[in-house]
Design a protein around this nucleic acid. Sequence first.
DNA 1: ACCTGAACACCGTTCAAGT
DNA 2: ACCTGAACACCGTTCAAGT
Lengths: 225, 225
Amino acid sequence: MPRTPNPDLAARRKQQIVQAALACFRRRGFHQASMQEICAEAQISAGALYRYFPSKAHLIGAIAEDVQSGVEAILTQAHAGGDPVGALRAVALVMFEEIFVPGEGALVADVMAEAARDPALAQRLRDVEVQTRQRLAEVIVLAQRDGRAAAHIDAETCANLIFATIDGLGIRQSIGETKDPAKSMAAFDLLLGQLFAPLQPAAAPPVSSASGKKRTRAVVEDVVT
Amino acid sequence: MPRTPNPDLAARRKQQIVQAALACFRRRGFHQASMQEICAEAQISAGALYRYFPSKAHLIGAIAEDVQSGVEAILTQAHAGGDPVGALRAVALVMFEEIFVPGEGALVADVMAEAARDPALAQRLRDVEVQTRQRLAEVIVLAQRDGRAAAHIDAETCANLIFATIDGLGIRQSIGETKDPAKSMAAFDLLLGQLFAPLQPAAAPPVSSASGKKRTRAVVEDVVT
DNA sequence: ACCTGAACACCGTTCAAGT
DNA sequence: ACCTGAACACCGTTCAAGT
């Protein structure tokens, strides 16, 4: 007899609720979407929902974790392809095109605002990101050994800079400051070009175009939708 | 007889309300602070407040504008000192130390989330930033003429990258990812070092230390408090 | 002209009651 | 064991009534 009765049902219900919450948050934003709406979308009563998630904030926490692990998957996979800079470009491209979409991209800003005030959520996000960050640090050290990055650069500081730049460019894009993902990408390429010389030639393996893009899209949809 | 009766009183009341709102938002966050609290802090009734600001969102709009013009003042002033890179460092330092403070720095994320969903607020922010951005573009072109920045870099893209990086580093700091403003500054210096060679020597005019810091603090307090 | 504060519609969350 | 949905305390906003 299991200590937690019927864990399968619990897992199913949680997934069902997170899906509904994601749909509602994307449609109307975290604070604008009501719990009643989410309950209706998940076809469940308010009381039942609160058996699985103790608050509205925990819903956004679960969603943020999913997005984070999606990002890590993309980085890991593109990294395995042996093209570290291409891996970073693939991550940034997916972020700019799929996550920071003007209108629904506000969700990321909501998550950040929530995390800035809720230490538990912030900790959760940090825990998930630690792995992604270590992987990025490996990428940087690798590039330094190949002589494609200046040896004096501290890998940890560099990783912080790269993640922060993606976040910053993405948020500005979702505010409508830049609108076009290509412009965000151009700014990110400027950073990469200065950090990792020489910048990938145009004839490099097409991680960021056609087949590469299809592949990363699939990963994100797997996790987010 | 003035078309708007007693504009002096109106201006005074608006200031009084914005002050109160800022205090409450910093203390408890945008969504956590109630209009009743703000009314109490401003010593005014709910009905009276709504004569001056049509909604809670408009309060954060007014505050965001104040912060933006504070940033522009710092950039302009430090730029006038003839040290463009120092000017950028001064802006970043103030942002990391005064604006993105862990806990109360969540306000910036709130503003961004709000702007991502409220086109009118986004437009207001863009309008204020346009001037700052042009000033930054001038700084970059200047550096290129001096041979301190690679000529192939597009000034507009570079300005976007720099602002985005400050926002991104700041937000990560207020989430507690980096905590220490010095670490955010180290990452920003890494960017500046790659963009503007050679990086300012340690013996450069002390825009970012002692006197420079005092000065910029004064400006921000002038505008924000 | 300017203000008050009770009232309105709605929110996130809880809990007695059902099956 | 799991769920329902009315009830609770509170929110942003409005508006009749005051001075």
